[in-house]
């Protein structure tokens, strides 16, 4: 019987694959079906995932196995319940406390993380000596890197009109942005085509056996 279920599974996969692809032609009952099954199934999946992989190991498991040393975990548990109190319209305001806590934490942590890794590290990485590079290409490139970084930062300068020196640098900055957008786009094409190849290999191979999987 298992063999049948394996084959059935492949047919299920093929059916849903084609249903999603059919959206490219136009919206149709097959897509609608696949879409709603996808939304429902994945919502269910994440619900179960949250219980088994987040709440049990991080909260219930710890509290049940060693209550005394995990007593602090009752606080987030309580805050979690306060979130759920939203369901009673009159008591909605109670959920502001967990939200305030979460947002305060996020704001604090973001300030630290972004200043460290996106400001300090990136600034340090841009302090380079182009003259010390090995090839002509690297030398020119490194100069471009420094100038480009500075110009694009100046493009984001908000509190002055973009004219004069600021106008020139931010114009330059836009050129760098354009090159970077084009290049990143071109760079990603290959990876995205691989995804389609993968799907077609499943359809033509595992399902139809036209090609050897």
């Amino acid at each position: 019987m298992s063999q049948f279920m394996t084959t059935f599974g492949i047919w299920l996969g093929a059916f849903f694959t084609i249903s999603i692809f059919s959206f490219l032609y136009k919206d149709n009952p097959f897509y609608k079906l696949a879409e709603q099954i996808f939304v429902g199934l994945s919502a269910g999946y994440w619900f179960i995932y949250t219980i088994y992989s987040i709440l049990i190991p991080n909260l219930f498991g710890k509290i049940l196995s060693d209550f005394n040393s995990n007593i602090m975990l009752l606080i987030p548990a309580l805050l979690g319940m306060m979130m759920l109190i939203r369901l009673i319209p009159k008591l909605e305001w109670i959920s502001r406390y967990p939200i305030a806590l979460v947002i305060g934490t996020s704001a604090g942590i973001s300030m630290l993380r972004y200043t460290q890794s996106d400001v300090l590290s990136q600034v340090a990485a841009t302090m380079i000596n182009p003259l010390g590079m090995n090839t002509i290409g690297e030398k020119i490139g490194s100069f471009i890197l420094i100038i480009g970084t500075v110009c694009v930062i100046m493009y984001f300068y908000f509190s002055r009109k973009q004219e004069g020196i600021l106008g020139a640098t931010s114009k330059f900055g836009i050129w760098f942005l354009m090159i970077s957008f084009g290049a990143s786009f071109g760079y990603t094409v290959m990876a995205r085509i691989s995804l389609l190849i993968g799907r077609l290999q499943f359809l033509l191979g595992d399902w139809l056996h036209i090609i050897k999987p």
Binding site: M190, I193, S194, L196, I197, L200, Q201
Partner: peptide, 10 residues
């Protein structure tokens, strides 16, 4: 064969 497909797509 995937690379062939890739090249054609490009």
């Amino acid at each position: 064969s995937g690379m062939d497909a890739q090249s054609v797509a490009h």
